[in-house]
């Protein structure tokens, strides 16, 4: 044993090393505010029992009321909420289940967040509390699902990729090109930004949105035009290209919709995903071109039924 030099020993004895526990910064007011933004899933008899302290929270943009239930305002969050319900035997949050005093509410919840809170700047994210906290981004969750359900089912895998990418792009395209016709404000939670609705804020939002799920990288040819001082998304020629691509895609999806609906019937995960897109396009984006396509489709009734069964 090497003896500790006297001066060093003195210093460490004078300042004993004690590990300080983190001080909770939660005040009653803050937790109340957090609680307000939480929408608890409803418990059923089939709800899987997780360990007592294990719970998950799905971070989403905002919620709307849909036939007595709260559903997220974007299709990906909705499909992930439904898949969580499906896998854990839960039901969507309702008016009564949101208050924590009610017995029907589960530990799991949806929480409205700002998209900048997410590690990759996009929602949804899944926050898992299992003693320690794990945050998974939407892309990671999709990857896990794809590995779990489509490892051997290659046709399903391709269909899953198609829904995750082409229909998602459809939603982004619709937002980017037709937002003038929409009440966009209601899709994002106002708590984080009173400014939403102002041109500056929207411009920032749409600029960020072009990066979600690699949209801009995958469709680099749509953003290929000369840059302008106001940021390239708003340049005239880029908007023209975006609009043209949007219209072409609407036509393509319109032709495919009936056979798409038929082909997902047997697969629970794909069925939930497609139903989410149909319902979001129809209820929130009914004024838009793609909304019209989905509105005229006969498959709407089925999609609503699927959502209402949760």
């Amino acid at each position: 044993m090497v003896a500790v030099p006297e001066p060093v020993k003195k210093v460490f004895e004078a300042f004993p090393l004690v590990e300080q526990m983190p001080v909770s910064s939660a005040t009653p007011g803050k937790s109340a505010q957090l609680e307000q933004r939480k929408y608890y899933f409803t418990q059923t008899s089939e709800t899987k029992d997780l360990n007592n302290d294990e719970k998950f929270t799905l971070g989403i943009h905002n919620v709307i009321e849909f036939e007595g239930r709260y559903i997220p305002t974007d299709p990906v969050s909705l499909s992930q909420a439904l898949i969580l319900c499906f896998r854990n035997g839960l039901k969507l949050p309702t008016n009564t289940s949101t208050s924590p005093t009610n017995g029907a509410h589960s530990d799991h919840a949806m929480l409205t967040l700002s998209y900048v809170a997410s590690p990759d700047n996009e929602l949804p994210i899944l926050i898992e509390d299992t003693g320690s906290r794990i945050i998974r981004t939407g892309t990671m969750v999709n990857q896990i699902l794809s590995n779990k359900y489509f490892d051997k089912d290659i046709k399903g895998l391709y269909l899953n990729q198609f829904l995750d990418e082409r229909l998602y792009d459809m939603w982004v395209l619709c937002m980017l090109t037709e937002h003038e016709n929409l009440q966009v404000q209601s899709y994002w939670n106002q708590t984080f930004s009173d400014m939403i609705g102002s041109d500056m804020e929207l411009s920032k939002l749409f600029q960020d949105m072009t990066h979600w799920s690699g949209f801009r990288i995958r469709h680099a040819h749509l953003f290929n035009q000369l840059k302008t001082s106001t940021g390239d998304f708003w340049s005239r020629s880029n908007r023209k290209l975006l609009k043209n691509y949007y219209l072409t895609e609407v036509e393509r999806i319109q032709k495919k919709l009936p056979i798409l609906v038929q082909s997902v019937v047997e697969h629970p995960i794909l069925k939930l995903k497609l139903a989410s897109y149909i319902v979001i396009f129809d209820t929130l984006l009914s004024e838009t071109r793609i909304g019209q396509v989905f509105h005229e489709s006969d498959d709407l009734v089925d999609a609503r039924k699927i959502i209402l069964s949760y």
Binding site: K155, Y158, L159, Q161, F162, E165, R166, R218, K256, I259, L260, Q262, S263
Partner: peptide, 14 residues
């Protein structure tokens, strides 16, 4: 199989 055809095309194109 139209669905396989266009989903496969999407797979190839990405």
């Amino acid at each position: 199989d139209q669905v396989l055809d266009f989903t496969l095309m999407h797979f190839l194109q990405t």
